[in-house]
């Protein structure tokens, strides 16, 4: 059975001495009916798709609405020209988050992680490290188990659906999962992973889901960037020993409570927030009219 609390997961690792990725993998075998080999093969397949999505990015691709595409290439170009504040890893995290999220909007193949709308966060923080040769595929896949295990706990205590919990449940959860994965990759303790997870989720608490015209484009694509950058800063804080003081499980419960308190207008209905602005509504008109013409 999947873990339903971070505390149980940490205790299980501590008492058994089994590494966290292994504990999470084992907890799923009964439920999924997969063997360990099948599970590891599936994780390698997901990682392969993440690498392929990034590789298949084309700067000239546009979504059906015409509002998504080309932004990752702009960041890459500007970073290469030394025009930006960020460089190296950070600049790549930004462009990779845009890349995968833009690919999603342009109907390319992605891995929902945990959702399609938040699919750019995990690849964004992992791909640059892997490409630079900092970590092998095997270590990345172990870190992905850690990310998935924390995601399962969010699913059980709260939700991973924007329609139920707002963007904090999608990009927020993805960011927290990625933060835990980053700490694990760097050899951090299980406690530090949980701390990074809690810090990342804390910092995106309250984020609403307000897609313009109801599409997974505005602001979803750029929100993948904040999810990815937030994951890196939360992981760095946790690795440095910074504490958030509210335990991970309680942060998840708070996220669930905040999501339930959100107006339905702010939960993937495309009514409130940015979707409700004059420009948001004008874009909806354009997109809908384009549909009528076809």
């Amino acid at each position: 059975m999947a873990y339903t609390s971070v505390r149980d997961l940490l205790n299980a690792c501590k008492t058994s001495g089994i590494p966290m990725d292994e504990m999470i993998l084992r907890s799923d075998l009964g439920e999924s009916g997969l063997t360990e080999e099948e599970s590891r093969a599936e994780m390698r397949r997901l990682w392969k798709v993440m690498t392929e999505t990034s590789r298949n990015y084309r700067a000239e691709d546009r979504s059906a609405s015409g509002f998504a595409g080309g932004d990752a290439a702009k960041v890459e170009k500007a970073a290469a020209a030394g025009m930006l504040y960020s460089s190296g890893y950070y600049a790549e995290v930004i462009s990779e988050a845009l890349k995968t999220a833009e690919c999603n909007a342009c109907m390319k193949r992605i891995v929902a992680a945990p959702t399609a709308g938040s699919c750019g966060v995990l690849p964004a923080v992992l791909l640059p490290l892997w490409r630079a040769g900092a970590f092998e595929e095997e270590s990345i896949c172990r870190a992905l188990y850690v990310a998935a295990g924390f995601g399962q706990i969010v699913a059980s205590r709260a939700t991973l659906a924007g329609a139920e919990g707002g963007c904090q449940a999608e990009v927020g959860a993805a960011s927290a999962m990625a933060a835990a994965a980053l700490v694990y990759l760097k050899g951090g303790t299980a406690e530090a992973c949980a701390e990074a997870f809690a810090l990342a989720l804390t910092n995106l608490e309250g984020l609403v889901c307000d897609p313009v015209a109801g599409l997974v484009e505005l602001p979803c694509i750029k929100r993948n960037v904040i999810g990815a950058v937030n994951a890196v800063s939360a992981a760095d804080m946790a690795l440095a020993g910074v504490a958030g003081h509210i335990p991970a499980d309680e942060v998840i419960d708070a996220m669930a409570e905040v999501g339930a308190a959100m107006s339905a207008d702010l939960r993937e209905t495309g009514i409130g927030g940015l979707a409700g602005t004059p420009t948001g509504q004008a874009i909806r008109e354009i997109v809908t009219m384009a549909g009528d013409n076809e």
Partner: peptide, 10 residues
Amino acid sequence: MRLFDVLGPV
């Protein structure tokens, strides 16, 4: 939720 429902589908 199963692990590959959280990470995935492709």
